[in-house]
Design a protein around this nucleic acid. Structure first.
Length: 335
DNA sequence: CATCATGATTCTTT
DNA sequence: AAAGAATCATGATG
């Protein structure tokens, strides 16, 4: 490896010939193979940097002060301003404003929709619950499953916000640092406020590209979480036997018109300890499956018909029997 | 472990 | 908006 020669090669005078308003490291295309007139060893520069001491810094400070106080300084500064005035016009054509990145907007929208990037509310879980309910739409029944989801979502949001804050802070720090630097330099070379502004824009763009990575990974995390939990809303649990009995009873006793009204659904939901939506699901499934294969359900139909008949008989004969909800082991309980 | 039952979701129809 | 139809994914079962 001849890194040394390569480095030597890449350092030429052109590095200083770039944009006057930008520090060299922010420009593209500086350096590169070039005429090797001087071939100044970059190692020398590094050496100089490494050997900077407080003393030499003080020295430099003093020299700067001396320069600033030089009697020719204002005149020189004016000349520089003039030159700058001429050159800056040709530079102005650079990309001023960029259109908002569609991908970034997509990510932002999604994070907002998931309740991640929204305003952090005190409760946290409440916000997450609202978000989950809004996105899930149907759910909101057994919160035992959702609480885990909410907890994880809150966790993700916390990480996201702390990271975002860190970036924000770093960005601000860096920006003020650079601005101070530029202001300091503006005493010896002309720097227009517009240039400083553009510099700030560049910094912000760099940092926002970092932020986008954060948003991207946050989005991925949320997606994974969703697929694991919210999609686990279809982690189906069979209704208990009693509930299916109640539902079947209603279904077969209203076989000619198995469409319970809203009130009836509520009643059934209450009796079965399930939601109205679940009752609707059940009837939807039952109707279509019954219709599809009546023969398969014939036995079941007969059974429930017989039972309701018996129940009716009991109710009528014994008069005021409030309710016999379970009738655990009656005629058709098992084969 | 293959298969069916079943609750939930999604899309289409009414 | 509600029902129908197709489909998905899991639970139960043998």
């Amino acid at each position: 490896m001849d890194e040394q020669t390569r480095l030597m090669h890449s350092h030429t005078g052109v590095g200083m010939a770039g944009h006057p308003g930008l520090p060299p490291h922010m420009q593209e295309g500086t350096g590169g193979p070039d005429g090797d007139g001087r071939k100044q060893d970059i190692g020398d520069i590094l050496q100089q940097i490494m050997t900077i001491t407080d003393q030499s810094l003080d020295e430099a400070q003093a020299r700067k002060h001396a320069l600033n106080c030089h009697r020719m300084k204002p005149a020189l500064f004016n000349v520089l301003c003039e030159i700058k005035e001429k050159t800056v016009l040709s530079i102005r054509g650079a990309q001023e404003e960029e259109p908002p990145d569609p991908q970034l907007m997509r990510l932002d929208n999604m994070l907002l929709a998931e309740g991640v990037s929204g305003p952090e509310k005190g409760g946290g879980s409440a916000a997450a619950a609202a978000a989950a309910a809004a996105s899930g739409g149907v759910g909101a029944d057994n919160s035992t499953e959702h609480s885990d989801y909410r907890a994880k979502l809150t966790q993700i949001r916390q990480i996201y916000h702390t990271e975002l804050e860190k970036y924000e802070q770093a960005c601000n720090e860096f920006t003020t640092h650079v601005m101070n630097l530029l202001r300091e330099q503006s005493r010896t070379r002309p720097i227009s406020p517009k240039e400083i502004e553009r510099m700030v824009n560049i910094i912000h763009r760099k940092f926002s590209s970092i932020q986008m990575q954060l948003k991207q990974s946050t989005c991925e995390a949320v997606m994974i979480l969703r697929s694991r939990f919210l999609d686990a809303r279809r982690k189906r649990r069979n209704f208990n036997k009693q509930a299916t009995e109640i539902l079947n009873e209603y279904f077969y006793s209203h076989l000619s018109n198995p469409y319970p009204s809203e009130e009836a659904k509520e009643e059934l939901a209450k009796k079965c300890a399930i939601t109205v939506a679940q009752v609707s699901n059940w009837f939807g499934n039952k109707r279509i499956r019954y219709k599809k294969n009546i023969g398969k359900f014939q036995e079941e139909a007969n059974m429930y018909a017989a039972r309701t008949a018996v129940n009716a008989a009991n109710a009528s004969s014994h008069g005021s029997q409030a309710n016999s909800p379970s009738t655990p082991n009656s005629s058709a309980g098992d084969l």
